[in-house]
Computed example of a mutant assay.
Amino acid sequence: MTHAPSSTTRLTVTQRDSISVRLVREALLAFERADLSGAQLLAELGLDPACLRELDGRIDVRDYTRLWLGLAQRFDDELFGMDPRRLRSGSFAFISRCCIQQPTLEKALQQALSFFGLELESFRGKLIRSQSLAEIVLRERAAEPARAFCYFTFWMLLHGLACWLVGRRIPLLAVELRCAEPEYTDDYRVMFSDNLRFARPSTRIIFAAEVLDLPVRRSEAELHSFLAEAPANILVRYRDHSSLASRIRQQLRHLPAEQWPDAATLAQRLCMSASTLRRRLAEAGQPYQTIKDGLRQEMATQWLADASVSYGEIAERLGFADVSSFYKAFRKWTGSNPGHYRNLILAPTQH
């Protein structure tokens, strides 16, 4: 990530492929001084500072990219000044080039974590593989946790790179952070997972271990294209931005699983034909069954983190006939069984 903005751009408020203005404020925070406000920084980078007045507004992801790259070039830091040591410009390109030389995602992640551990003070991660689950745990020296934006930016770089290396989105079963929950989390839930847990003993992400064995097959030409589009591509490429799928999820969340409508009834409620619904969801790569499975997985991971909720209760809440059916489905969704996930999420973090 080395290219920078050139001409003045008015930050447009959009919904699709967009970033909250709240995250723009977070990005500017570490660089603001008494003699240099966030608005002045935006103007200096050729971006319109007027957006800062619209706290609930959104900007095009391309403008957020211009901001990220401009700040990285201006301060020689690709991590928004959030670590005592700067992540110098060119660092992301360097580690990406190193990672495409690795045979598997596991080796690539170990390479990336080693690099970040050498370059940074506060973001030293360890990859731990435990049966069918894997976690990356940050070992932090500071007694006080960092801002949520700091953690999510680091995860964005690491997770975005990992997704590109294997050419697919890597679902995160849980994202845990030491810090308290910030006022705004909507973008983070879209980018990473609905299962965000705050004020935890440590900061970590949890995912299926099977993806670690996926081969890395990226060429120098593909790397060049990837870096030319970064970070916009890691901000939106691997996230679900289907508004129809989001509307359906919102409807289902307000109903018990046993009351979820069939496809024909859902289409009627959405004022469209069943064939139109199927076609639009297929075009978005989100069939109705996939949406329901994803929502059931989301709910299951939340309830499994609560030791007071039994497996039988979870199975019943999700609309399964019995516990064994729930176990089978959960393993299909995540590559892990519910008991192993519960043990990992409730156990003290490994170091």
Results as ranks from 00 to 15, higher is better:
348 P>Y: 04
4 A>G: 09
45 L>I: 09
39 A>K: 07
275 S>R: 13
98 C>I: 08
52 L>N: 03
28 L>V: 01
345 I>Y: 03
132 S>N: 13
300 A>Q: 04
188 Y>S: 08
175 V>H: 01
146 A>N: 10
258 E>W: 11
298 E>L: 07
34 A>E: 15
257 A>H: 04
13 V>Y: 08
116 F>R: 05
131 Q>K: 12
144 E>T: 13
291 I>G: 01
264 A>T: 15
60 D>T: 13
128 I>P: 14
304 L>Y: 02
100 I>D: 05
165 L>W: 02
137 V>L: 11
315 A>D: 02
270 L>Y: 04
265 T>I: 08
271 C>G: 12
329 A>G: 00
251 Q>H: 12
283 E>S: 12
21 V>H: 06
283 E>M: 11
176 E>F: 05
118 L>K: 15
332 K>D: 00
14 T>K: 08
248 I>E: 01
117 G>Y: 06
87 L>K: 01
293 D>N: 14
212 L>F: 05
7 S>C: 10
19 I>P: 10
194 D>A: 04
55 L>W: 12
87 L>T: 00
195 N>F: 09
294 G>E: 00
207 F>D: 02
12 T>Q: 13
140 E>N: 09
179 C>W: 00
338 P>C: 06
193 S>V: 02
134 A>Y: 02
198 F>D: 02
289 Q>D: 14
71 L>I: 07
6 S>P: 11
313 E>C: 06
332 K>P: 00
1 M>S: 12
284 A>F: 03
120 L>P: 01
126 K>A: 13
104 T>P: 05
117 G>R: 08
192 F>C: 04
123 F>D: 03
320 F>I: 07
177 L>Q: 06
226 F>E: 09
78 E>Q: 10
328 K>T: 01
70 G>D: 05
194 D>N: 14
166 V>H: 00
63 D>Q: 13
220 E>L: 15
119 E>D: 09
145 P>C: 05
322 D>Y: 03
330 F>D: 01
113 L>Y: 13
99 C>I: 05
268 Q>K: 13
151 Y>A: 05
108 A>N: 08
271 C>F: 12
345 I>T: 08
152 F>N: 03
227 L>S: 05
98 C>N: 15
198 F>W: 09
344 L>T: 00
242 S>M: 02
33 R>S: 12
36 L>Y: 12
243 S>F: 14
32 E>Y: 02
229 E>C: 12
237 R>F: 12
286 Q>R: 14
18 S>A: 15
171 P>V: 06
37 S>P: 15
255 L>V: 07
95 I>E: 04
161 L>H: 04
202 S>D: 15
38 G>I: 07
269 R>H: 10
236 V>W: 03
248 I>V: 10
138 L>M: 07
89 S>F: 08
54 E>W: 11
8 T>I: 12
